[in-house]
């Protein structure tokens, strides 16, 4: 008799999880070892990593290709500003409130735009983002089309002194990245996650297994929207200033994020993380070139899509299916039996 066991972890994934834990501890200590500008950059990296993971969750796992996630980034920023300025909430309370509002608003939006299929869904999400942008441009209490700044008192209420404030903002960014990646990981390991991957692989077969496709995708959309709103709130806490064009910018919140996911590897958890690191490495070295840099990003994204559609992570993992995040179940004991 051979013993067949099913497990998810592999030696590679165990090592990776230990390394990840260590990295998080080192990064947590960054305010003590990094300079102010590095800290800001790291914070930005974590926010983009979160956006990329969320977009990948939506497009790479649920097949909901959105080019309108800036709707929720901007909504998060505005809700955070509104909650602190008008309702006098502390920033740490305002952030989760903004996330809840984002999730609540995304539910009727989903019900509406889920009527569009495939690529038309994508443009539909963009229309929604435009509606949000044009609507906030009409709200004069939030500065209308020219936008508004976060009052100094709100920023000061976060923590005493500039260093402490920046450290806290950084920890929030690190925390949200851990929460987002952890939440997506947990979702994918759950029953719902298995259902989601079944839908991705074969929608018809999944349906015949009794999986409610609409409801599963709806859940993913709403969860993603809520978390994207949360990230949006943090982005504008870091920026301290908001305007409709900046808040609902398709370039900043969606184009770069799509680039990150495509270059890293769509449909894997590792891809967006790797892609974020590559993107920031490129940006920090080439951003002085302005428009040429953006053209180059577009060319690289097209080339990757044409010649290596699984992205850099797809090239690295090759055919062996290496996973740093233990997601797939593997049957053990079969090879011994075969020999």
């Amino acid at each position: 008799m051979t013993n067949l066991t099913v497990s998810r972890s592999t030696p590679a994934s165990t090592i990776a999880m230990v390394a990840l834990g260590t990295a998080i501890i080192i990064l947590f200590a960054a305010p003590w070892w990094a300079g102010r500008s590095e800290l800001r950059l790291l914070g930005e990296i974590f926010l983009y990593m979160s956006l990329a993971t969320l977009w990948n969750f939506l497009a790479g796992y649920a097949g909901l290709v959105s080019v309108g996630q800036q709707a929720y980034v901007g909504l998060g920023g505005y809700m955070f500003f509104a909650a602190t300025i008008f309702w006098g909430l502390s920033p740490l309370v305002a952030l989760p409130i903004a996330a809840l509002i984002g999730a609540a608003i995304s539910a009727p939006v989903a019900a509406l735009i889920f009527r569009l299929r495939g690529a038309y869904f994508a443009i539909g999400t963009w229309v929604v983002a435009e509606v949000f942008r044009l609507t906030f441009a009409q709200i004069s209490a939030l500065g209308g089309g020219s936008g508004t700044s976060l009052p100094v008192s709100v920023a000061q209420s976060l923590a005493d002194g500039r260093d402490a404030r920046e450290a806290l903002t950084y920890w929030l960014a690190l925390g949200i990245a851990v929460v987002v990646i952890g939440a997506v990981f947990a979702f994918l390991r759950s029953r719902r996650g298995v259902a989601l991957m079944a839908i991705r692989d074969n929608e018809l077969a999944a349906k015949s297994l009794g999986i409610d496709i609409w409801w599963t995708k709806f859940t993913v959309y709403v969860v993603t929207a809520g978390l994207t709103t949360l990230v949006g709130g943090l982005i504008f806490l870091q920026k301290l200033r908001i305007s409709p064009d900046a808040a609902f910018s398709v370039n900043d919140s969606t184009a770069f994020v799509i680039f990150i996911v495509v270059i890293g590897g769509i449909g894997t958890l590792e891809g967006p993380i790797l892609g974020t690191l590559v993107y920031f490495a490129l940006r920090e070295t080439l951003a002085d070139y302005g428009t040429i840099y953006l053209i180059a990003l577009g060319v690289v994204a097209i080339a990757i899509m044409l010649f290596a559609p699984k992205g850099l992570w797809g090239l690295i993992r090759g055919h062996r299916g290496t996973e740093l995040f233990p997601l797939s179940r593997r049957v053990r004991g079969l090879t011994e039996k075969g020999q």
């Binding site: 184009a255 799509i258 680039f259 053209i295 990003l297 577009g298 044409l306």
Partner: peptide
């Protein structure tokens, strides 16, 4: 995604 890249 390719047409999105083209757009940029």
């Amino acid at each position: 995604l390719v047409t999105f890249g083209l757009s940029i």
